[in-house]
Nucleic acid binder design. Structure first.
Length: 478
RNA sequence: CGGGGUGUGGCGAAGUUUGGUAUCGCGCUUGGUUCGGGACCAAGAGGCCUCGGGUUCGAAUCCCGACACUCCGACCA
């Protein structure tokens, strides 16, 4: 109990080399593996199961807010991509092009979707005629491709998995509400299901999505003090509607352009889970999405009755949690380390001595606390402990973020903080991009967002000293 | 895309400076003893030394090129 010895020698210490620690965890926990396609990864069964749980949870939240799933094509004709100017400028440098079908050269190139705004708009133009057709609340689960220069498993890969919601509304107000609503869905998902605290806010013009009027974001702080944008929600106004000629007849019998939103959350969130909760023994998974919530490790399984008892427990536990029985012939110690590496929230040990006393040992992954629990109480105790792990993870992450959040009211302090103290820096800003550029130049930080929860640290911009318009959270980002 | 680093059985490395036919640990297979924090003994299997050229009697080793991974920047979910 409370043994601080590092038991998994294969994983590089977090303090030693954070980047290496990260990839070690990805590989040793069997989440993903490299493929022979540059910049693309193979998401292994364990990683896929994790993504499926994330997906099912989020999908339920989308359905509950009235959204429907659709499936759009993988390809976008060049002409379609070209329709919205800012959008194409933003994405053109990183799209993959299909130029041939078999041996034949195509008359028009097709791009592999980097995002699907254009496809949705093209379709919406055909199916929206009247205000009665609105709102359209569509979502799709798919993968997209962006020709990235440098890649890292989950955090940045050339192909990644995500969901993209695309909605059309009768009024700007309605669309703006939708944008905010979906950001809240992401934020609650992160906090309730992933135990990741997030800062909700608005992106500056410099950081917003190509073609959007407003981009909202949730920003999480990783173990190493770098920020990870964990979900975004965009308000498009009627920009795309005009570019794609999407019009409907309004209640007053005039032709109008609908207002649009889009929002996305990607498999990158798995990187956030790793870097928020993980430790030197490997992955630590939030119970709500863990593929295995409880792993049963039989002790001395060759002894009479142990395996039978363990198997019977597995059957019982199936009714209320995701449970796995480790029946391999590895030693008990091996199994402990193995499942810790894979982040299983609870371990259940059952051996001859326990069976005699009708009990078992439950060990939490987050703090290694052990508890002897009567076998008759498992149905109530396991959910309690899973919840305790969740709360423990959330509190620890929140505490760390607070400890790593600083404030600066003058440039010198900001630069000094950025250079010496990894984390978020709160500072006032005048709203000018030149100041953003200068902070990037001098302190190496970018604006993560203008949080909804504003504070007044001072009256003037941290950079230029002119009157400030808002408080911005700055940081180094993934 | 700029600057560094790396590439040797499944994994981690030694060997490269000084060219001579590949070594170690872990894992894997089989048998046996073990099992409450990565057990032990014995016997085995497994290598186009990232790829392509070149130099040489001979290349993991020297030269040229490509690719991949990785770190630091710039760019992006």
């Amino acid at each position: 109990m409370g043994n601080e010895k590092k038991m998994v020698e294969e994983i590089t210490g977090m303090e030693v080399d954070f980047a290496k620690w990260y990839t070690d965890v990805v590989k040793k926990a069997e989440l993903a593996d490299y493929s022979s396609v540059r910049g693309c990864m193979i998401i292994r069964p364990y990683g896929t199961a994790l993504w499926e749980n994330i997906r099912n949870d989020l999908d339920g939240r989308f359905k509950a807010t009235g959204h429907e799933n659709v499936m759009m094509p993988l390809f976008i004709p060049e002409s379609l991509l070209q329709k919205e100017k800012d959008h194409v400028e933003g994405f053109a440098p990183e799209v993959a092009w299909v130029t041939h079908g078999g041996e034949e050269k195509l008359t028009e190139r097709l791009c592999v979707r980097p995002t699907s705004e254009t496809l949705f708009c093209d379709h919406y133009a055909n199916i929206i005629q009247s205000y009665r057709d609105l709102p359209k609340l569509y979502n799709q689960w798919c993968s997209v491709v962006r020709w990235e220069k440098t890649t890292r498993p989950f955090l940045r890969t050339m192909e990644f998995f995500w969901q993209e919601g695309h909605t059309m509304h009768e009024t700007a107000e309605e669309a703006m509400e939708e944008t905010r609503r979906m950001l809240e869905v992401y934020a609650s998902f992160c906090e309730e299901s992933l135990a990741i605290p997030v800062v909700k806010g608005l992106k500056t013009d410099k950081e917003k999505f190509a073609g959007a009027e407003n981009t909202y974001t949730i920003e999480a702080l990783m173990h190493d003090g770098k920020a990870l944008q964990s979900g975004t929600s965009h308000y498009f106004g009627d920009g795309f509607s005009r570019a794609f000629d999407i019009q409907f007849t309004g209640r007053d019998n005039t032709l109008q352009y609908p207002y649009q939103t889009s929002w996305g959350l990607s498999s990158r969130i798995i990187g956030a889970i790793i870097m928020t909760h993980g430790d030197d023994n490997g992955l630590v998974l939030p119970p709500a999405v863990a593929p295995v919530q409880v792993v049963i490790v039989p002790i001395a399984p060759h002894k009479e009755g142990v395996m039978e008892k363990a198997a019977a427990l597995q059957e019982r536990l199936r009714a209320f949690c995701r449970v796995k029985l480790d029946a391999t012939d590895n030693s008990a110690g091996w199994k402990f380390a193995e499942h810790e590496m894979k982040g299983v929230p609870l371990r259940l040990e059952i051996g001859p001595k326990d069976i005699e006393k009708n009990q078992c040992v439950l060990v939490r992954r987050d703090n290694r606390e052990k508890a002897f629990v009567n076998l008759d109480d498992l149905q109530t105790q396991i959910p309690v402990l899973l919840q305790a792990v969740h709360d423990g993870l959330y509190q620890k992450a929140l505490q760390r973020r607070e400890n790593m959040t600083y404030a600066a009211t003058d440039l010198e302090t900001l630069v000094e903080t950025a250079q010496n103290k990894p984390g978020f820096i709160k500072a006032m800003w005048c709203g000018e991009q030149t100041c953003e550029d200068q902070l990037k130049e001098q302190a190496g930080v970018t604006s993560r967002c203008m949080p909804f929860e504003q504070e007044t640290l001072s009256g003037t911009c941290v950079c230029c000293g002119k009157p400030a318009t808002s408080m911005v959270v700055w940081g180094k980002a993934y």
